[in-house]
Design a protein around this nucleic acid. Structure first.
Length: 476
RNA sequence: GCCUCCUUAGCUCAGUUGGUUAGAGCGCCGGACUGUUAAUCCGUAGGUCCCUGGUUCGAGCCCAGGAGGGGGCGCCA
């Protein structure tokens, strides 16, 4: 395999002949081409002898063009880099017409780049984000594998419509212009591909529970689909979710697992993506320099990540959080849009942000929520008022993890499902786990893009996934 | 789904109370320079002021409707 720019810059084989394949970022003074191949944030400087090179070829070395350059690697005579490639042969294999190529060697707005998502991967920022995204995915697999977890593949097409995690995308091969109906006037799903109603998964949790009660420690990591009409910087219609599920785990074990996992993968990124994170840190600082002090990040990106790795998350119950919020200055001064009424109301994002960003100034794990505001599968606590749920809240992102100890008692679970109108008949396969060899178990869901958002310091979730799917947008 | 803001050159944006020929920086193109670092200097070109309709002697600016985008909230990961 040819050496990547990352390998050349690391090995620095000065004096030897090397070949660089990549795309030109800038071409300065008709002499210095900054070439990137995406292997790292750095470019390599290819020095062209402009007096000995055909002017027609020189004109084709433009921003965005693909080139193959061969020459000797030398210590750089200039200041900005250690080494440079003194080209003896240069070939433009793919021209990029400078009149038409949309990327210029300058800052572009995120909104503009989103419209050219097929090209934005070539920018420094998106290159860094994509490399960090890869490293985080790799670190997640590594973390679980080392701890004896099995990667379990829950189905993407689900026949269950009782997952209760949100609106679903219908999967069908029925012709929309000629839908078959039953004599009663309903859609005749027996004529459909699966002979029943099917949807894209909104969660692999229920299937992961089945696996945990057989393999003990499992996790899923796959695409997840929510047809909610959510228009925020934290929501996607198609996103990736990690869902570990562990037999004989209680809520405390679950929190320990989630916290150590987040700290592990963030420190993995700090170690293996240091250059990319450093680039994004400086980018964020430049961007915030023009903002008023109050809108700037309290910590730079690297400090923020190190802080999360080095400090325990704050753990408290929902009830304790309500007390803190009730007595908080913004609540007393009527600054909250939704004033804290007391125990039982769901927390709004302004409340979560106050706890995380103002009161504790660190990640917070909230536990033991009122059972009325949480899902049917969460274990009912003693006293029947709360469930063993936990949400991990991160600054600027909000809920990054949602998890719980699961209700393993068949009678309690069936009662809860009846209360919450979950169709029991369709869920017998799920209830079988409680009928046969049930045991306490727990798990959580981690929104992968929210993790990438946090680690990269980007401000919109649409900029940490290659081709974002949101209401009204499924380009590329 | 609700609220709000925006749409002017390839990109980022300015455009005063409604006034005559709509500007800047960067990019592109041409030239100069040639150890540059988003190179620099000089010059040229580049506009359906998002669309439709209205008010007005006159609309980039005001009004109505539409389209596209941003942000906040809700739903949640």
């Amino acid at each position: 395999m040819k050496q990547s720019i990352k390998e050349i810059l690391k090995g620095k084989p000065i004096g030897t002949e090397v070949t660089v394949c990549g795309w030109v970022r800038t071409f300065r003074s008709n002499q210095f081409a900054a070439v990137s191949d995406g292997s790292c944030i750095q470019t390599i400087q290819v020095v062209v002898d402009h007096e000995a090179t055909d002017p027609g070829l020189l004109k084709r070395i433009t921003t965005g063009s693909a080139i193959i350059a061969t020459g000797t690697l030398l210590a750089s005579q200039g200041k900005g880099q250690d080494v440079e490639l003194k080209a003896t042969h240069i070939e433009v294999v793919g021209d990029a017409d400078p009149e038409k190529y949309p990327l210029q060697p300058k800052r572009h707005s995120m909104e503009f780049l989103r419209e050219i998502a097929h090209l934005r991967i070539r920018t420094n920022t998106f290159g860094a984000v994509m490399r960090i995204r890869h490293s985080l995915a790799y670190a997640i697999h590594h973390f679980f594998h080392e701890r004896g977890f099995f990667y379990f593949h829950s189905p993407v097409i689900t026949g269950s419509d009782a997952e209760g995690a949100g609106e679903m995308f219908r999967v069908t091969t029925l012709p929309l212009n000629k839908i078959p109906f039953t004599p009663e006037g309903a859609v005749d799903v027996k004529k459909d591909f699966f002979q029943k109603e099917t949807n894209l998964t909104v969660s692999g949790q229920l299937e992961a529970e089945l696996a945990a009660l057989a393999l003990s420690r499992v996790y899923t990591f796959g695409p997840t689909f929510r047809a909610e009409n959510s228009n925020t910087t934290r929501h996607l219609a198609e996103f990736w979710m990690i869902e570990p599920e562990v037999a004989f785990f209680d809520l405390q074990d679950d929190m320990d697992l989630a916290e150590s996992m987040l700290q592990y993968v963030i420190s993995f990124a700090l170690e293996h993506c240091a250059d990319d994170i450093q680039f994004l840190k400086e980018r964020q600082e430049q961007e915030e320099a023009s903002k008023p002090q109050a809108e700037r990040s309290p910590m730079d990106l690297v400090s923020k990540l190190k802080f999360v790795v080095d400090n325990k998350f704050e753990r408290l119950t929902y009830g304790e959080a309500i007390e803190i919020l009730k007595n908080s200055t913004p609540n007393k001064k009527g600054k909250f849009q939704y004033p804290i009424e007391g125990w039982g109301t769901d927390l709004q994002s302004e409340h979560e942000r106050y706890l995380v960003e103002k009161h504790f100034q660190k990640p917070v794990i909230l536990t033991n929520y009122p059972k009325e505001i949480k899902a049917f599968y969460m274990r009912v606590d003693e006293g029947e008022k709360t469930v063993s749920a936990m949400d991990i809240l991160f600054p600027a992102i909000g809920e990054i993890v949602g998890g719980s100890q699961r209700e393993e008692r068949l009678d309690v679970l069936t009662r809860r499902m009846e209360e919450m109108h979950v169709p029991l008949e369709e869920m017998q396969w799920y209830l079988d786990t409680r009928r046969f060899g049930t045991c306490k178990h727990a798990g959580f869901g981690l929104g992968f893009e929210r993790l990438v958002l946090f680690v990269t310091g980007m401000s919109n979730i649409r900029d940490v996934i290659p081709f974002p799917r949101t209401p009204g947008n499924a380009e590329f």
